[in-house]
Nucleic acid binder design. Sequence first.
DNA 1: CTGAAAGCGCTTACAG
DNA 2: CTGAAAGCGCTTACAG
Lengths: 345, 345
Amino acid sequence: MGSIGGGPAEQSGPSRGSGRPTMKDVASRAGVALKTVSRVVNGEPGVTPETTRRVLGAIEALGFRRNESARLLRTGRTATLGFIADNWAEPDHVAVYRGLENIATEHGYLLYSGSTDSDAAREERLALAMCARRVDGLIIIPTPGSHEYLVSEIEAGVATVFVLHPPELVRADAVLPDERAAARAAVSHLAGLGHQRIGFIGDAAGYQSRTLRDRYTAAMAAAGLTADPAWSALSPADLAPGGRADRLAVTAVFCASPRQTREVLRALPPGRELAIVGLGDFELADLVATPVTVVSYDPVLLGYTAGELLIRRMGGEHGPPRLVEVPVTLTVRGRAATVLPSQRG
Amino acid sequence: MGSIGGGPAEQSGPSRGSGRPTMKDVASRAGVALKTVSRVVNGEPGVTPETTRRVLGAIEALGFRRNESARLLRTGRTATLGFIADNWAEPDHVAVYRGLENIATEHGYLLYSGSTDSDAAREERLALAMCARRVDGLIIIPTPGSHEYLVSEIEAGVATVFVLHPPELVRADAVLPDERAAARAAVSHLAGLGHQRIGFIGDAAGYQSRTLRDRYTAAMAAAGLTADPAWSALSPADLAPGGRADRLAVTAVFCASPRQTREVLRALPPGRELAIVGLGDFELADLVATPVTVVSYDPVLLGYTAGELLIRRMGGEHGPPRLVEVPVTLTVRGRAATVLPSQRG
DNA sequence: CTGAAAGCGCTTACAG
DNA sequence: CTGAAAGCGCTTACAG
């Protein structure tokens, strides 16, 4: 174990047999030079059909498969992208990954992946480990906290794109849902149903929804509603009977993420009337006992778009960091979104 | 683009700047030999504090970070595992990945990952691409179809473990839920509620649940019930009003996977009484309008166990392929599981 | 059409 | 305590 990097214990003994055949082995079996094998393997022109046949025969006989890692070392690239998710338990994060995988596959990249569980130290460790492997680019669903540790890597040429949440303390591209439009759609939908006391449910750390909280406040103002600051500091736990939500007499909430929305559903006491709009759709949202309206975006598109931008950057596109916003759609579900007459005014 | 492998278009021009500093750069800046830099970086003993200081200074000044890929080429290992999922849209597959990531991180491995969407050709392409990068081991949630293409890789020393579904046409380790116990638990639970006409819902291809179907048949027999073969060939579509399920007068079903269970929930006409037991739990299973009983296993444990076995194999543990079964638990939910008196007998 | 040499960035023996 | 040489498995110039 070294002092930098570390890693699994070295393999003991030659238990792996004599290893896999190399180009050198193929060359000597075919009676040609190494370079000729390389030519055949790479489909380069200028090799006699007869020689080609001999080389292919040796490859077949030996079960040779070119060591891609060695090739890439010489080439200077790795044809590898790194993806860092915050939390695999979030279907949205997985969907972002799927979008990235789609475009990565189209372009011949393989993916390193890992998750952080919102632990900034884990994110740093993972990202730097991927950089040490010399990934060509990095896609990150960021954890709360600074991403300053990436500055030197980005300067060294590692293309980096943040997705789903914005980065902090580092200038880099980001691909996000259109949060301004989302907040407006949610608030104006609820206002249209007669709600005035609309709360905002962010996450505990208050980080990942900080910009969204500002959007909510702006959207409330745009809808002609004066938002009590306390309304925007709610968490799912505040929905307990007699809890803060009751005391604040909130009749509707806008949830910052599918996870918040699901937690609200779980926390909601039976019989408590509450109109819910969540940012981000989730499976079975239409089948739960209290169907919820959502402002949804396409998380797969989010990942695909981020990958697209990354590939353009790796291709040499320069310019200042870009913010790409993906459109959102309001999907109305259930009757719970209507304010009862007695609650109006 | 070569004829083998292919890959993204080569980067055009020296847009990456002059590249990152190497040990050679550090050595010349510190005025020492390459080997001395290597000693410091690896924490090897026998270097003067003064020399160490000079080297560390140069590392700092240059922003040197060791190229892990190059180190691993020399070492002969890659400290990398490959994970191939069938479908990232399945939360269970993601959970298996999470378990694998846990143990991989503990042991210092990085993960390549990819998915197949049940496409056997994609699986083969991915697996071979990972082998070409010389992953130390491979964990696969297999697609339907033969895995014979892996034989030569396994012989060449790539440790391979299948998880969640068994492999076909290749001898390799597998880690699965205890399907026999699952089928028994499901059938005996339903039989205990008075059901006799219990159907089995597998997937369309009929593949991934083939062994499970046999388990179901055996469990029916063990419960003293005679199963009409038609009952075991049901799909969610058969639940449409007046469909096969109605004609067969099935009063309960055992679903082969969380996906089947969710599809049954979607296909179920309102008012149709049907007791449902699914293999594998899923989020919101307790909150849907028709709560379902499940025979659940821990998918994270499945992935962790598979990784554990893989690491033992990579460590040199020999012996014939092993089948590891993870325990299952019956979780009873909802009242729909009870047969109405009028339906009994 | 084919090949011998040098090198990608590092480590592994082996000398001093 | 420090270093010069060879090599991991491949590709990139450059010769014949």
